[in-house]
Amino acid sequence: MLGYIVKRLLQSVVTLFVIITVVFFLLRLLPEEGYLGAAADKMTPEQQEVYLTNLGLRDPILVQLGNFYLDLLRGDLGKSITYRTDVPVIDIIADKIVYSFAFGVAAVALSIIVGVPLGIFMAQFKGRWLDRLGTGYIVFIVAVPSMVYYLLIQVYITDFLNLPMLFNEDKPITWVLPLISLSLGPIASYAMWMRRYMVDELNKDYIKLARAKGVKERTIMFRHVMRNAFIPLAQYLPATILLTITGSIYIESLYSIPGMGGLLVDAIQRQDNPVVQALVLLFSSLGIIGLFLGDVAMALVDPRIKFGKGESVR
């Protein structure tokens, strides 16, 4: 077990290193114009040159890469250039992560609380009105572009209930709509997944045997079917939760939530390399940690899995 963990961790560090280096080089392909911003037209070529040199963009690319890693080892992620000039990247991210994480975790919880039972009931009442209703909902969510129904929800529900349109930290009532909007998609996918899983599972021989033995339907459900269903759930949950911090670009934009959504897009478009690199580092690490925790969680939940045998690729 311990050996396995150490090996996985070492692999992860190498993976992270490669990812960051690749993104580092990709970022250097962006046009230099982006660093100059609105002032580009007014500066003379010499002044532009001085400006770019001061940003460190005139150093040989390997020197730039080396400096970046040296700073990283010291725990310094650098300072933002064009997103919030001279503010440490860490501070920018720390301000925002709280909101996205809070909304993200709440949305995951809500989706599971609503989505999983919905799927179970749909499977149990397969073909009846509840199943049809649920399927209708899933079809709607899958088909209609989310940016359309998010906006409709915001405008009409706030109008109908006479609520403020924008998020306000001090008024909890304004937290509800973004949270619900954020959960609509995941609810649909949990319900869809759960329903399919249950229908497949209920047709299996061991269930038939259990029924034939006269085991109660309720016991079959809880002791056999659902237990197995939670294994894959346990595997993906850590990554899902960790990655909620990336936020939802569209919902956060609509409701003025000061979260992480859109930070990555903004930072890339403004060519704020330190911010982009920090975000890549953060997201990739979380992804990797999430997968790792998922494996551990699965091993704990599922007695059939033993550590150390075979490599794990999902």
């Binding site: 993976t15 992270l16 962006l30 990739s284």
Partner: peptide, 23 residues
């Protein structure tokens, strides 16, 4: 290939999409 997969899988898709469209 497993290593390559781990790298590619963990670069956020948004970044690749945006960078490609910009470059």
């Amino acid at each position: 290939l497993t290593h390559a997969y781990n790298v590619i899988e963990n670069i956020p898709t948004t970044i690749v999409l945006i960078l490609m469209s910009l470059i």
